[in-house]
Amino acid sequence: MATAQAKRPAARRAQASTPLIEWILGGIGVGLLLACIAFLVHEGLTDGEQPGAITASVVDIRPAGDQHVVLVRIHNSGSQTLSNVRVSAYLLDGDREVERATTMLDYVPGKSTEEGGFYFQHDPRELRIEIRPEGFQKP
C-alpha cells in the first residue's frame, strides 16, 4: 500500500496529459479496427456464395520408406469455405487404374491453399497421376 502511494503522482500525471505512446497506439487501434471492418464488409458483400472449386497440383514426388509420397497443393478458388474435403489421387497406366490413394482435408477456406500428400506403392514418376476432389461438407 505504501509503495502504491509513492507511485501515485506519476500515475496521475500519466492521465492528466495524454502521453505520445497512447496517441500512437490509439492511432494503430483506429487503423486496425477500421481496416478489418472495411475488409470484412467488402468480403461479406462481394463474394459470399461463390461455390468452392478445388484444383490440385503436384508439388513434389519423393520416396518415403518403401513407398512413394506425392505432395500436393490443393487450392479452393471459390469463396465458400469447404470442410472435410475428400480428395483422391489415381495412378493410371494409359486408361487402366493401377493404384488409388485418398486424403481428407479438415478445412479449405475460400481463395486459399492447403497442402497434403498421397502414399503409393508404385513409383508415380513412371505413371500418370490424376487428382480429383470427391466431396465436402459445409462447415
Binding site: 509513492a6 503522482p9 506519476a10 500515475a11 500525471r13 500519466a14 492528466a16 496529459s17 502521453p19 505520445l20 505512446i21 497512447e22
Partner: peptide
C-alpha cells in the same frame, strides 16, 4: 521522484504509460 518528474515531466508520463 516528484523533483525529477517536474523537470522531465513528459518523459515520466511516457514511462508511466
Amino acid at each position: 521522484r516528484s523533483a525529477v518528474s517536474t523537470r522531465t515531466h513528459s518523459w515520466d508520463a511516457e514511462r508511466a504509460y
